[in-house]
Design a binder for these strands. Sequence first.
DNA 1: AATGAATGAGTATTCATTCAT
DNA 2: CATGAATGAATACTCATTCAT
Lengths: 205, 205, 205, 205
Amino acid sequence: MSEPRFRRRKEDRPQEITEAALAAFAEKGYAATRVEEVAKRAGVSKGLLYLYFKTKEEMFKAVVRGLVIPRIDALAASIDTSGLSAEEFLRGPFVDFVKTLPGSPIAVVIRLMIAEGPKHPDLVQFYWDNVVSRGLSAITELLERGVRAGEFRRTTVNEMPHLLVMPAVFSVIFRLLFEKQALDTDRLIDTQVDLLLAHMKGGNS
Amino acid sequence: MSEPRFRRRKEDRPQEITEAALAAFAEKGYAATRVEEVAKRAGVSKGLLYLYFKTKEEMFKAVVRGLVIPRIDALAASIDTSGLSAEEFLRGPFVDFVKTLPGSPIAVVIRLMIAEGPKHPDLVQFYWDNVVSRGLSAITELLERGVRAGEFRRTTVNEMPHLLVMPAVFSVIFRLLFEKQALDTDRLIDTQVDLLLAHMKGGNS
Amino acid sequence: MSEPRFRRRKEDRPQEITEAALAAFAEKGYAATRVEEVAKRAGVSKGLLYLYFKTKEEMFKAVVRGLVIPRIDALAASIDTSGLSAEEFLRGPFVDFVKTLPGSPIAVVIRLMIAEGPKHPDLVQFYWDNVVSRGLSAITELLERGVRAGEFRRTTVNEMPHLLVMPAVFSVIFRLLFEKQALDTDRLIDTQVDLLLAHMKGGNS
Amino acid sequence: MSEPRFRRRKEDRPQEITEAALAAFAEKGYAATRVEEVAKRAGVSKGLLYLYFKTKEEMFKAVVRGLVIPRIDALAASIDTSGLSAEEFLRGPFVDFVKTLPGSPIAVVIRLMIAEGPKHPDLVQFYWDNVVSRGLSAITELLERGVRAGEFRRTTVNEMPHLLVMPAVFSVIFRLLFEKQALDTDRLIDTQVDLLLAHMKGGNS
DNA sequence: AATGAATGAGTATTCATTCAT
DNA sequence: CATGAATGAATACTCATTCAT
């Protein structure tokens, strides 16, 4: 009675709540998730949520903001720090990262953005600035490095790094909807990267 | 005063309502769209909606069912009726169709499916059976025809027609979210098709 | 096509509707019965109902008014016309009538009156004037006849003919609610009449 | 401004609400009573009602369940604890109880059961098991005690305790409907009990 | 800080009633 | 007369948010 087994630290609370919210959103979507449900999952009272997030919407934004940035940052950073060539990086860390996406929190966030994005322009802007834009820039930079190093020709792909990201987004959505009739998303990703690398490395196209 | 209160158009109503609903869903998403808003757009009373659709959910399903099938059917049919070679078909009608997707009702339906799909398994199944599965089969068949005609080698693409569809889905989502920072989706589509055709037509991969 | 099998006569309509309404009310009660349901049972359109009854409430009143009066009238009339003694009448036609009540339309009307009466004071008044009051008077008159004829003593029952009616109302309600655990209502009625007749005919109470 | 918006009385709430509902149902009947009206009478918000009762129907059932059982229990218990003879009990506590019925909450519940019972079979069953069946058993037992003590003969009444309850039900309904032209229900009850006691105590029937 | 009882605006749905045909 | 498509006011119920404790 006098000794709580766990002493929750205030600093952890926001993230604990954010994770509970993510789990709930993943199952029901944003609109269909009750604030009370999030509270229950986080093991706190409904009222406490409002101490950390002014509204349900704020909570939603915190989820979207908090769970993606770190991962994108990590990937972007590793481009520079890894001593790998561009091709090695694409076939290694990049493909690995992309393959884990469909099962990761990012998949949930992507779904949330698609579903709720149009109602939250500021969030979309935030997402564009901090995730998409930076992600695409990082890839562009990587490809440039490959060109400078003589690994790649300069092709349309340099201007359309989307071609590399595309299978990730597609896989996330496909798996989200059609789990049962699953697509071999790993192979899809490999194939697309193969195609692009072949294209960039040579041939006469 | 001069306008009759009743219009009595039983046959047209369902589609009129369905179209109004699509427009509303496109702007706000399913959950955030008020039934009354749909009624207003359709120019009818709230009550009338319930004469044609038992619930808001039924209305949603009617939207998803009614607006995509015809278009997919038309495309699938044209594969057989057009006298074009496989490559000509891909570069012509197929690419044309895909390029119009991002601005078409199908884009809205795709978004709705992503957002609401997990809550409506029957709808997802319906969508899989009638749209995705049939679409992929049609493309597979087209590629086979190309192989038989000596146009194409047999490659991974034969087993992964998703590679051809991918830019469509990606474009739809990208444009939906980031209209402002728009991607040149036409070019993305062209490039992907170019890459795949080059791959299938020759080279040593 | 040109020859309808039945040619409905306008004069029958109100009663056809009234009967359909009674059947519907019997199953669901007044509030839970939809006007459309009555129309369906009567085999006419919803709109036509409003040609005969201004509102649903009017229809209800017509049911209550139309289906009971004739039966009470018939019973009251038979008191005078039958050549029976008071006791013979009570043991004969009266008990017969009372025994049929629980399964008759009157049972339904009684339930409707109990349920809806407090909201329709005019109807209650009508019912009092035309059914209850007249019924009680008729019985009172019958008992007086018995007294005058030397059949009965003058007792409290002369002032409380309710004692004779009581088992009818009780049986109707009991059967309505507890069909399964049924009471032998016939026996209840017989017993009560026996008791009262014994009381009125003699003894020293 | 000086009154606190919240009162926080979790334990009292259900009964407060139940009593407010009873009052409302008494005036308008179940179907015609608005949930908001109950809330207003209870001095709480509409939403709070749903914290304690899942639906309006549950509220109704709580009313029916909660307000009758205690009174029936008290009466049944007093049969055993009072040192009275059977006749004394009938003429004393029993008649007193029955005479208060027409003005008590039970009268309202009886009306509700008649009006809404057919739509709530479980409630009827509950009512049968806990009120009617137990009540009749208690009376039967009382009469048996009277027989064993030599107070009464064994008569039809032993098998039909309904004869004793009948005036209660009749009075409730009569007073409910025809307040104005009121019947002297007390006298009706006394008379019926007199009749039955005279019958059971002797005579040659 | 933390709770959860309480609020009330908001929403889907129903249904008696009307009226163009 | 007759129909049934159309109306819209009415109502049960939900849920994000507040605040006394």
